[in-house]
Design a protein around this nucleic acid. Structure first.
Length: 511
RNA sequence: GGAGCGUUCGACUAAGGGUUAGGUCACCUCCCUUUCACGGAGGUAAUACGGGUUCGAAUCCCGUACGCUCUACCA
């Protein structure tokens, strides 16, 4: 490697960060760290009309949560700032002017209405070689007319003048040789009437100024790559241009097309990394974080959507990803998002995470659900008991709330068909024995002893223990789920168990 | 319409001239579990289509179909 690898993620702060964006960050980050390079966050806020307050902070928060902290950014500083394009506005015009002087760009004075009319008049109108001579610009106007317009402060944009029939070929790190005929690309606007650059100019100028060595972005940018290649050629030289890689898209689970926020709402899964509330519409969008995903799982599943290490290995830590990642193994085709598989990744990461760490992560969800945890070590113990049956951190609530409070609903309907006086008598005797033990201070505290005691009593009553296990479970947890019943009694302790059985007995005898 | 890119089980993918086309998720069966899971053992299921090249093609070439992206003073 001749120079230090420098990559950038360059989002516009227009809303929540879509997992497609997170994966673009991830591939940038993995590549940079794999090569011992730097990862830069640059905010592309050149469109004031689309600016959304809080979106930049949200992006930073997301990167932070994911553990992909930029080396340089608007808040991490660095030698190549500022890192917001709006603060770099003054830098761009000179390059646009340079292009005009070189004859590679021109002024265009057409109004929005002019363009609108032209588009209505000509199907598939393109501001390009075919039609630029019919428009109001510095190619069709005389020098005097142009300077008069400029002097009178007539609004204008600067457009690139796409060359005629030039074959442009560049090497994409993922796709190999990609070529375009320049005459099929229109004369893109480079500098807008408000003096701000468009993406096309800004990305080239900033990548150059920030010494970016590798530029990765979504596949949707491929068709405008020729514009950027040309700009590099005119402004800084092709030998200075970063290596490009256009990443495959993340697609809808069913049907086709790019995954969108709407798909998540429609199909019931998150698309944004974290919760996002649009400050203008007040619309809330759920995130992977709040849905109960571990950042390690999100990273893992995103990495495997379009990349693999060539083996059957699927569970990777970020460190493993950094050491194994290579662009050569990134796919060309898009990948459909599958929420079931996403949950499987999370489950695997829950199993990998130790109980104490899980406890601190689960605690906020318990707080939200208003489940009081008096003893942190008790939560850790409970987590150990139920973690195998949780796909999401939120599952811990349904899987373990009964360890902290009596169930609010008892599924008596599941018991009633097989309920009889013998069982009623057995459970009545059981709570009586529990009460006796408690009053004597001889309460059993081992799950195995509880089981033995239970079975002995069943034998006395001449009932198969198997016929009693399900009723006992439902009485304790409210339904047909949860870990071993005697582990539960052991955890909630005899007094509480006795109360729950008593309560259920009353419900059953009232039916 | 134009341009570019893509296409292996339902989904994510492995195999890059020679494999009974492998793995994972999902689904189904069985075992374990006196619940639900976890775990274990099996099963269903794919090279878009048509031509070449070759002893041999998922793999190389050509064509077709289909899909996607872009085609804004948005990124």
């Amino acid at each position: 490697m001749d120079s230090k690898v420098r990559v950038r993620f360059a989002p516009s702060p227009t809303g929540g960060l879509h997992i497609g964006g997170v994966r673009t960050v991830l591939f940038n980050y993995l590549f940079a760290k794999h090569h011992g390079g730097e990862f830069i966050l640059r905010i592309e806020d050149t469109d004031q009309s689309r600016f959304v307050a809080g979106a930049e902070q949200y992006i930073l928060d997301t990167l932070n949560w994911c553990g992909m902290v930029p080396d340089e950014s608007p808040v991490h500083h660095g030698a190549y700032g500022p890192y917001r394009q709006s603060e770099r506005k003054h830098l761009y015009k000179q390059y646009a002017d340079q292009l005009i002087e070189q004859g590679h760009a021109y002024y265009a004075f057409d109004t929005a209405a002019d363009l609108e009319a032209k588009r209505n008049q000509i199907p598939n109108f393109q501001y390009s070689r075919a039609h630029r001579m019919e428009m109001k610009n510095s190619i069709t106007l005389s020098e005097n007319e142009v300077s008069d317009l400029l002097k009178s402060n007539t609004p204008y944009v600067i457009r690139i003048k796409m060359p005629e029939q030039e074959n442009l070929t560049f090497h994409d790190l993922i796709r190999g040789e990609v070529s375009f005929d320049t005459s099929t690309v229109d004369d893109k606007v480079l500098l807008k009437a408000d003096g701000m650059p468009t993406y096309h100019l800004a990305v080239v100028v900033d990548d150059h100024l920030m010494k970016i060595t590798h530029a990765f972005r979504g596949e949707e940018w491929l068709p405008s790559a020729p514009v950027h290649i040309l700009l590099w050629k005119y402004l800084f030289g092709l030998d200075k241009m970063p290596k490009w890689a256009h990443l495959p898209l993340i697609l809808k689970p069913e049907g086709h097309g790019k995954l969108s926020k709407r798909d998540g709402e429609r199909l019931g899964f998150p698309v944004f990394a974290m919760d996002w509330m649009d400050p203008n519409t007040k619309e809330q969008t759920i995130g992977f974080k709040e849905r109960g995903f571990l950042p390690e799982a999100l990273i893992n599943l995103l990495a495997l959507l379009g990349w693999n290490d060539g083996t059957d290995k699927e569970i990777f830590s970020i460190e493993e990803l950094i050491s194994q990642f290579s662009l050569e193994r990134v796919h060309k085709g898009g990948a459909k998002f599958d929420y079931e598989k996403a949950k499987w990744f999370n489950q695997e990461w829950i199993k990998k995470t130790d109980d104490a760490t899980l406890a601190t992560l689960v605690k906020p969800f318990f707080d939200d659900a208003q489940i009081e945890v008096h003893e942190p070590s008790y939560l850790v113990k409970v987590i150990g008991l139920v973690k195998d049956r949780c796909h999401l951190l939120t599952d811990f609530i349904t899987q373990s709330s009964f360890f902290f409070q009596a169930p609010s609903q008892i599924d008596t309907a599941a018991l009633l068909p097989k309920w009889d006086d013998k069982k009623q008598a057995f459970f009545t005797a059981l709570i009586l024995e529990y009460q006796t033990m408690l009053s004597k201070g001889e309460a059993i505290t081992q799950a195995s002893e509880l089981e033995l005691h239970f079975k002995n009593l069943a034998a006395t009553h001449e009932i198969k223990p198997g016929d009693l296990m399900l009723p006992l479970r439902v009485m304790l947890v409210g339904g047909k789920f949860g870990p071993g019943v005697f582990d539960i009694i052991q955890s909630i302790e005899l007094e509480d168990a006795q109360k729950r059985i008593d309560h259920s007995l009353k419900l059953l005898s009232n039916k």
